[in-house]
């Protein structure tokens, strides 16, 4: 059974003239790594807010249709209940960290659930280790680098042991090396712990290689839902201004001149491999 299922979902913010998205139908299976993208203002962040009940509980407005997340209807369960199933990581880690030490930040959600001390200890240590920041546990979050802060944010939602993690442009404030390592952490959570990942991103160059599926939204609707290699070839993807990776652009440019690489590359390694194949066969 799908871990997220939305049927004819339509949402309108309070005082808004038109819906942020309408008639969205979507099924996401457990263990998928979904890349959700589309032009700014297309409704992708709004859609994610429905997964953990921020909509309608926090934002109000009108939600029509049906959504079921991890077997629950978010509108019928408090946000703190949904938070045990759906972790949310925001663009700017500074907005979600507040405690005086990393360890306390990561423990905060668990303390609020009233879990026994040993259980909190165990889960905090586990989350810190999985995200590679155990050595930082006594440091203050605000003195860490952006990349380290984002790991703390991920650890703090991971400690809740959610089945789903939603990340809204988690790397955009980070330098490229930190961004790369955050995406590797996310990839590991998906692969090794089978956590369902929904990653909202504009920059697909670093993220495309990890995704099993790309969903493109435009003007409040899902306009494309494909595996990455196919999604990047679609005219629609280009039309709405999704930034396809440079290696895919190179693939398309070469194809225009009759040079067909064996597959659509999702990383520089794959591109180099395919180009080498063409060069070798050309030498005959």
């Amino acid at each position: 059974m799908a871990i997220i299922r939305a049927s004819n979902l339509t949402y309108t913010y309070p005082f808004a003239e038109k819906p942020a998205f309408k008639n969205v139908n979507l099924e996401i299976e457990r263990g998928e790594f979904v890349l959700l993208t589309g032009p700014s203002g297309c409704g992708k962040t709004t859609l994610c807010r429905c997964f953990n009940g921020l909509i309608p509980h926090f934002y109000g407005g009108t939600l029509e249709g049906e959504i079921i997340v991890a077997g629950l209807k978010p509108s019928e369960h408090a946000i703190y209940e949904m938070a045990q199933h759906v972790g949310f990581v925001f663009q700017n880690p500074e907005n979600q960290l507040f405690a005086l030490t990393v360890e306390k930040d990561v423990a905060f959600g668990l303390e609020n659930l009233g879990l026994p001390r040993d259980e909190i200890r165990r889960r905090v240590d586990w989350a810190l280790k999985v995200t590679g920041i155990y050595d930082l546990k006594d440091r203050a979050p605000f003195e860490l680098s952006g990349g380290q802060q984002q790991r703390v944010a991920i650890a703090s939602v991971l400690a809740m042991q959610p089945e789903i993690i939603v990340l809204d442009e988690p790397t955009s404030f980070l330098d490229p090396l930190s961004a790369k390592s955050i995406l590797e952490v996310i990839h590991r959570l998906n692969r090794e712990l089978n956590i369902t990942v929904i990653l909202v991103e504009h920059r697909l160059d670093l993220a495309a290689r990890y995704a099993s599926r790309v969903i493109v939204m435009d003007e409040g609707q899902i306009i494309l839902d494909e595996e990455p290699r196919k999604a990047f070839l679609e005219e629609k993807t280009k039309m709405v201004g999704v930034g396809i990776p440079k290696v895919v652009r190179l693939y398309l440019l070469l194809r225009e001149d009759g040079i067909n690489l064996s597959r659509v590359p999702l990383s520089p390694d794959e591109a180099a491999e395919s180009i080498v194949e063409v060069l070798e066969s050309d030498r005959g």
Binding site: D175, P176, L177, S178, K180, D205, P245, K246, V247, L250, P268, D269, A271, A272, I275, V276
Partner: peptide
């Protein structure tokens, strides 16, 4: 050193 990454196309050509 500056915590950047090489441009994608540069990465391809380093391997070529």
């Amino acid at each position: 050193e500056a915590s950047l990454v090489l441009p994608e196309i540069t990465q391809v050509f380093m391997r070529l």
